[in-house]
């Protein structure tokens, strides 16, 4: 019986310490020391409108933009209130149909080139902010054509948004799609308004 009373008191006391004081303390310090990181690295326009987060991907469909990977998060993809992978298995007909359609569409715009696998597979979070350098390279001719830029100019913008392996060996090289497209817009907006997907 004594142990039951202790169990109740222990739950309450440790909940206050570990469930309230600890996270509040971490939040307090984090908000002072790393305010940008702690709040999701939001990108804002000068009027305060939020465009997105540096580390959360967005969907792109227009030919003048670099496209992100397919996404299973929300109806339009990249819904950062509904993160999700496709959870389709390796023998799923639905997965094969989706990839087949995407490969055909991509090969039509860039004939003869192999389609990098990350460009036709959805990420685990559905919010992947990155594509591989191969997937960026694959899209260079289309974006250069649409924006009337030389391919070399487009590649220069890509390289400014390409991250190598962290500390030289961790993870994989990657290109941040939202930052890349934002930068392209500031260099030269797409010549025609992006048509709807």
């Amino acid at each position: 019986m004594k142990n039951l009373l202790t169990a109740v008191l222990m739950t309450i006391v440790t909940t206050i310490l570990l469930g309230l004081i600890y996270p509040l303390m971490v939040t307090g310090i984090a908000q002072v020391v790393f305010p940008d990181k702690a709040n999701g690295q939001l990108i804002k326009r000068s009027d305060g409108t939020i465009i997105g987060s540096r580390i959360i991907g967005q969907p792109f469909g227009g030919p003048g933009y670099f496209h992100s990977r397919p996404s299973a998060a929300g109806a339009a993809g990249y819904d950062a209130g509904a993160s999700s992978g496709s959870n389709l298995g390796p023998t799923s007909q639905k997965l094969m149909d989706r990839i087949k359609g995407d490969v055909e569409r991509l090969q039509a715009e860039n004939p003869g080139q192999p389609v990098p696998v990350d460009l036709v597979t959805s990420s685990g979070s559905g919010l992947d902010p990155h594509i591989s350098p191969a997937a960026a390279e694959f899209q260079v001719p289309r974006v250069a054509r649409e924006r009337k830029l030389s391919e070399a100019e487009v590649r220069r913008v890509i390289s400014a948004h390409t991250e190598g392996r962290q500390f030289g060996f961790l993870g994989e090289p990657r290109v941040n799609v939202l930052e890349l497209n934002l930068d392209l817009d500031s260099v030269k907006p797409p010549s025609i308004p992006a048509p709807a997907r």
């Binding site: 390796p90 997965l95 192999p114 389609v115 990098p116 696998v117 597979t121 990420s123 685990g124």
Partner: peptide, 24 residues
């Protein structure tokens, strides 16, 4: 189906369904 899963200097290749590019 035409997806390139090979390892190159520019991509980690392999089965990328459900995986993040930064982790490969």
């Amino acid at each position: 189906l035409g997806a390139d899963q090979s390892v190159t200097a520019l991509q980690p290749g392999g089965n990328m369904e459900g995986k993040e590019v930064r982790f490969g």
